[in-house]
Design a protein around this nucleic acid. Sequence first.
DNA 1: AATCATAGGTAGAACGGTTTACCAAACGCC
DNA 2: GGCGTTTGGTAAACCGTTCTACCTATGATT
Lengths: 343, 343
Amino acid sequence: MRTTIRDIALQTGLSVSTVSLVLNHKQHRISEESCDRVFKAAKELNYRPNQAAVSLITKRTNTLGLIIPDITNVFFAEIAKGAQARCQELGNSLILCNTNDNPEKDVDYVNVLLDRGVDGILLVTSVSAGKSSAERCLEILGRSEKPAVLVDREINVGANSASFPGVFSDNEHGGYLATKHLLSLGHSKIGCITGPMGAQSSKHRLFGHIRALQEAGLAFEPSLVREGSYHTESGFRLSGELIDMGVTAIFACNDMMAYGVCRQAAARGIVIPKQLSVVGFDDLPFSEFFEAPLTSVKQPAYDMGVCAVDKIAGIIAFPQEPWESTKFRPQLIIRKSTLAPGV
Amino acid sequence: MRTTIRDIALQTGLSVSTVSLVLNHKQHRISEESCDRVFKAAKELNYRPNQAAVSLITKRTNTLGLIIPDITNVFFAEIAKGAQARCQELGNSLILCNTNDNPEKDVDYVNVLLDRGVDGILLVTSVSAGKSSAERCLEILGRSEKPAVLVDREINVGANSASFPGVFSDNEHGGYLATKHLLSLGHSKIGCITGPMGAQSSKHRLFGHIRALQEAGLAFEPSLVREGSYHTESGFRLSGELIDMGVTAIFACNDMMAYGVCRQAAARGIVIPKQLSVVGFDDLPFSEFFEAPLTSVKQPAYDMGVCAVDKIAGIIAFPQEPWESTKFRPQLIIRKSTLAPGV
DNA sequence: AATCATAGGTAGAACGGTTTACCAAACGCC
DNA sequence: GGCGTTTGGTAAACCGTTCTACCTATGATT
């Protein structure tokens, strides 16, 4: 049996109350000597407080929940890593929930985590066709009184959207940077493979793309835009179509799809960047080591995880204070996959 | 305030005991009618049991802990994904701990998880130079009475090694398969980039490599073996040395390093597989999409995660029964990165 | 009428802590 | 000697469940 506070009380001849007071460093007039005795006994008996008992009374579990679409995706893994690291620094634990991009599971996991009594939830929602599940999540969270922060994926459902703090990338800016880079190299026929249009991030990246185009005085041609799924396969398939249309550059809205583009190019004997320029988004650690090391828009995924935890911790510590969302500025990392066209 | 069992008792006019009995489906003579009343009230009031209170008395948290070196590494992420999925199916939650390959953190996290009262621990140890930290983990776990299972990374520290169940790959066999494949293609000067020798998995893969060599009647030449770190960078660097020595094929003991090899080849204008064959290990989902889609030894990482959770669950359910370790057979996936030499 | 089953349900002690209100002894002071 | 103050410490309620041992009708049996 684990030693309890009672065992310490017995061994020191003090009361349970006293022991608790000492162990929690409450400023309550207890003599030096008693304190020492308690600490000594605690160490000797290797005392560890029973967290269930503590939680029962303090109403805190020092546990946060993280819901993400796919831990196997390095971008999300990076967020998880940052969140976990920060949790540990703050003496919290992190429960991992993986939805496999199934929005129904978002709802399930929100409920599971709430049942478990987590102190807060970090939610990276799955992309859903109808918004219903994201909406339901927010509704449940709203009723729960527990703090939650949206990470990476913005949700816009009427009034709800603004009712939770978030940690996002400025996707519009990222899309703008990527496209402007290609334009500045001299490309004018640029294909764009977007993420699923159900996701705000996808839309914003596309908006940035369009803005850059317009700023350059180019007409935006919808046929050069294809809706992908953020998976490699869709990058492979859709880039085929775009290449057929004669584009000299492709902006893939995430790196995974950019890899697909590279595969397609390789399959056709098209040399990157000589014959085709490619820009990705995310800058996965991997991209650096790619065939033609990938030019990509870097998102600070790890920092976003850290930031999200900090935000939750802040809300827990100061529930009254108003919170605000954070928007990270993405950064263009220029490598070898982009070059002036038509050499 | 969340509704408690007491609220239900009040609303139904029954006692707390009765409500608890009903809600837990204990076969205890309670009339149909009372049961219905309780369930109805529970639903109406949206009752959710307080897990802290339940844990306090049942001594179970329905929570497992997972300690891994790097969630950002797809192989580990895959394990985590499998473990998480199975946990959910069993009504458990999974706490994620990421050590960044720091063996000290293994120890820290084991303690943290034990303090939290997890029901069991899944441990993928970090590679340590001196074995001390792995040993300490096992020692702490041994004292804790909580079940633990070692995943992927075997530990051999005297008597301890066998005192925990494990879920491993047959790394020796994998190394053997990889090398035999290269030999059967006609390669005779094969380089090998191993993982850190502190890890058993690294050693075993090398042993398999050597066995295949000897079986083919080839003298094992130590200079063709280089100790890598399992990171891409080391694959890049060490493959350079091996290529300089004139190898026609390289067995990289994980895919990340194989990517490094591919980079090195590309940098030198060496075409894979025509001029250099490359075999990896892990078969990350990614490898399929690589320059020359990578031939690799596939480990069922996801299944290993699932299996580990099952094992823990089994031990929890039947503490008396003897457990046994599981060793998965890896499988050689032949793609385009290997070819007969000297064309 | 006395005895015994049985059905239906409850009281109350855990579980291991936290925290507040109170207490007793010693001390200082006039 | 009486009174206030400080010092050091404790009793006990409480958190929300679980679960065993017991209780009380009611009907059946002899």
